[in-house]
Simulated scan of single mutants.
Amino acid sequence: MSVMNEQEKKLVEDHLYLVKNIVRATMSINESIQGLGYDDLFQTGCEALCHAALHYRADRGATFATFADVVIKNRLLSHCRKITRLQAPILYLDAPSAEYPELTLADTLPEKNDRTISDFETFYLLAEAGKHYNGISQKGIEALQLKCRGHTGVEIARYYGVKPNHVAAWISRAVSKLRADDFYLQHEGA
């Protein structure tokens, strides 16, 4: 990471208006999508302006404003592409179904059995599963038991002396195994 000198800092300060103008004129600001709000776009544009100041060479014939304009626009476009790739579109339950336009998405959801299993049954099933699995799956089942007792992932991680993402991975592995196990599938909606 390069440190800007005083001349580069002055270029950035004098041309901050470019970021504001480009964001307002060329970007589709959408505050409901994380990363596409005005503040996020402005911050990305400011980072691009700093990058432009670090790499600007007056001997190449372009003014700094022209060079920075291109750098900022390109960085913002890349940012928007990245955000749209990472975030799936939001589907609203009252929107029409693609397959059956006369129905809403809520109408096409499968019916769920209203009966839920009790806490006692949950603890019993997890205890039984703990007897049949080992390794990461067993740790995941233990973590699930602790979660059912109200502990957070951070607390469980502290108990085991690991990072919270390890606990999440253990739970994910255990859940995958349980979902594939016929014994526990028959109790899922019982």
Score class of each variant (00 low, 15 high):
Gly37Pro: 08
Lys10Ala: 08
Ser137Gly: 04
His55Met: 06
His187Glu: 12
Gln87Pro: 00
His166Val: 13
Ile83Leu: 00
Val70Pro: 00
Tyr159Asp: 09
Leu91Cys: 05
Val154Thr: 15
Phe42Tyr: 12
Glu8Gln: 15
Thr26Ala: 15
Ala106Pro: 03
Ile22Ala: 03
Arg115Thr: 13
Pro89Met: 05
Thr84Met: 15
Val70Phe: 05
Gln7Glu: 14
Asp69Lys: 10
Ala58Thr: 08
Lys20Asp: 14
Ala174Thr: 01
Ala180Gln: 14
Tyr159Ile: 06
His151Pro: 00
Ser78Gly: 15
Arg75Leu: 00
Tyr17Pro: 00
Ser176Pro: 00
Ala143Met: 09
Thr116Glu: 14
Pro96Phe: 01
Pro110Met: 02
Ser2Arg: 13
Ala65Gln: 12
Leu18Cys: 05
Ser172Pro: 00
Leu93Ile: 06
Lys147Glu: 12
His15Trp: 01
His51Gln: 12
Asn30Cys: 07
Ile90Val: 14
Phe183Leu: 07
Leu185Gln: 11
Thr116Val: 13
Gly189Met: 09
Asp14Trp: 06
Gly135Asn: 02
Lys131Tyr: 06
Lys10Thr: 05
Ala95Pro: 00
Asn21Asp: 12
Tyr133Pro: 01
Ala88Thr: 04
Glu31Gln: 13
Cys50Phe: 07
Lys147Cys: 09
Leu77Phe: 13
Ile171His: 01
Ser28Ile: 05
Lys9Asn: 10
Asp40Leu: 03
Ala168His: 08
Gln87Glu: 09
Ile141Gln: 12
Arg173Ile: 13
Glu128Lys: 08
Ala129Lys: 07
Ala25Thr: 10
Thr152Ser: 15
Phe64Thr: 11
Gln34Tyr: 06
Gly45Ile: 06
Ala98Cys: 01
Val23Pro: 01
Cys148Pro: 00
Ala25Cys: 09
Arg57Met: 07
Leu16Tyr: 05
Thr63Ile: 01
Ala48Val: 07
Met1Ala: 10
Ala180Met: 08
Lys73His: 05
Asp181Glu: 15
Val167Trp: 07
Ala53Arg: 03
Asp69Cys: 12
Leu49Arg: 02
Ser118Thr: 15
Glu6Ser: 12
Ile136Pro: 01
Arg158Gln: 11
Asp39Val: 01
Arg60Leu: 15
Ser78Glu: 15
Glu102Trp: 06
Ala68Met: 03
Ser2Leu: 08
Ala190Thr: 03
Leu18Ser: 07
Thr152Pro: 07
Lys82Phe: 05
Leu41Val: 04
Pro164Arg: 01
Ala58Tyr: 03
His151Phe: 13
Asp114Phe: 06
Gln34Ser: 14
Leu185Ala: 11
Lys82Ser: 10
Glu8Lys: 11
Asp119Asn: 04
Val19Ser: 08
Leu77Gln: 13
Ala129Leu: 12
Asp107Pro: 03
Ala58Gly: 02
Glu121Thr: 13
Thr84Glu: 12
Ala95His: 12
Thr84Gly: 00
Gly45Asp: 10
Ser172Gly: 09
Gln186Leu: 14
Thr84Cys: 11
His132Asp: 14
Ala190Gln: 08
Ser172Gln: 13
Leu49Pro: 02
Lys112Ile: 13
Ser78Asn: 15
His15Glu: 07
Gly161Phe: 03
Ile141Arg: 07
Cys148Phe: 05
Thr122His: 03
Asp94Met: 01
Gln87Gly: 01
Leu178Pro: 02
Tyr124Arg: 15
Thr104Leu: 07
Glu142Thr: 11
Val167Arg: 07
Thr26Gly: 04
Asn21Ile: 03
Lys139Asp: 09
Leu109Cys: 11
Cys46Asp: 08
Pro164Thr: 00
Phe123Tyr: 10
Ser28Phe: 05
Ile83Arg: 01
Asp107His: 14
Tyr17Ala: 10
